[in-house]
Write a protein that binds this DNA or RNA. Structure first.
Lengths: 207, 207
DNA sequence: TGTGCTGTGTGACTTTATCACTGAACGGTT
DNA sequence: AACCGTTCAGTGATAAAGTCACACAGCACA
């Protein structure tokens, strides 16, 4: 059994249709949900875990575009599902995840017959568009030190995180050296302590 | 009368519904279709002309996110239409444009009753997402001189264009000074000639 | 104990962003 | 034609970020 809120309000017939035509997959941390170029097998409804979506530019550099968690919909897949084009980005599982895969036929029936499903899809699309617009703004105009500190602050609750400078560089779409230097500067200022693959926060890491 | 291809394949009853509930507006060059914060009045179907969508960051800097032309759909509006949130970006008419405004109720009916309308909406969303992902990649990793040259090359057909350095800076999401310097360098290299508000291309502007 | 791989630190240099200011070009007035 | 205000463009100085090259540290494993 599984649960995803976009399927909550379906009438009984559609619900049965959905339950019998959806295949749930379990993917563990570090595995790839899809790669750039892959064809789309169906619309993934994320049941739990977290998945990050990132793309790699011609230069070979990568940047994380957004994350998906419980109850999210992989909106990006819809376009690929409709047009048959391959994915342009890749999705990496960060915490063990399960997803319900909605095949094309079922997707069409749900879109046809359920207003609430349609609403869920539209809202998901809207959020994704918003996310990307904000990301463009951030990448174009914000200073890297601010962006890094903000990223760290969000994760500072745990006291320490396990991440390499290279991974952090991909998060923010910059070069590893830039991250190394900025982190070193933060360490000098006593806001954190660095060790191989690990960042430990000091004090409240606030300000 | 007006024409937009997403309405092409509607059954007769829906077509009448659409024709009687859509209001077409004409907006001239330089006017604003919507501003950041505006509530959404309906889904604009662009009939002709061109409209650029740009956003302004907290820093006050702006960047052009994408353009819409004949037969495009202002997908960004759907999210605002559904959630009631205001626009996050602003839309400026570049060439006199006409748009058919689809109000919420009609939009819902079309989504409910026309598979081809749904398909059109989904495809439009997919393209927009793709555009924004490519933009993120470009802003994050590409050098400004390449981006500028590419932008100019696309428009070099006319022999000359009328645009200020400031406007060009907004196109690419950078500062006016950066554009001025890069253009000056291109002029030194004999690829174009600059004058107030105008850029004249020399030779084939190729290479 | 050595060997290899991954991760980190850093100097040197280029590109881009920001700040501050100058002057040129244009439109409208007298 | 001379004046004035506004917009547009050019440029030096400096800071931030990206790129290249390389040294070395930490860790796994033979």
């Amino acid at each position: 059994m599984f649960h995803h809120s976009i399927l909550d309000t379906l009438p009984e017939s559609l619900r049965r249709d959905a339950l019998s035509n959806v295949k749930t997959v379990r993917i563990e941390q570090g595995r790839i949900l899809f790669r750039a170029g892959d064809p789309c097998q169906g619309l993934p409804l994320v049941l739990n875990g977290t998945v990050k979506v990132q793309m790699t530019g011609v230069s070979g550099n990568s940047i994380v575009l957004y994350r998906m968690g419980s109850d999210d919909i992989c909106t990006l897949s819809i376009g690929c599902l409709m047009t048959g084009h391959g994915y342009r980005a890749e999705a990496v599982v960060e915490e063990d995840a399960e997803a319900a895969m909605v095949p094309r036929g079922l997707f069409d029936r749900l879109m046809d017959q359920s207003a609430s499903f349609r609403l869920g899809i539209m809202e998901s699309y809207g959020r994704r568009l918003d996310d990307l617009m904000l990301l463009v703004e951030e990448v174009a105009f914000r200073r890297m030190d601010e962006r890094l500190e903000r990223w760290l602050e969000v994760r500072a609750g745990q006291g320490a995180i396990t991440i390499t400078h290279q991974e952090l560089a991909v998060e923010l779409g910059t070069a590893r050296e830039v991250i190394s230097r900025l982190l070193k500067e933060l360490e000098r200022r006593g806001k954190l302590r660095l060790s191989r693959g690990r960042i430990q926060f000091i004090g409240a890491f606030s300000g």
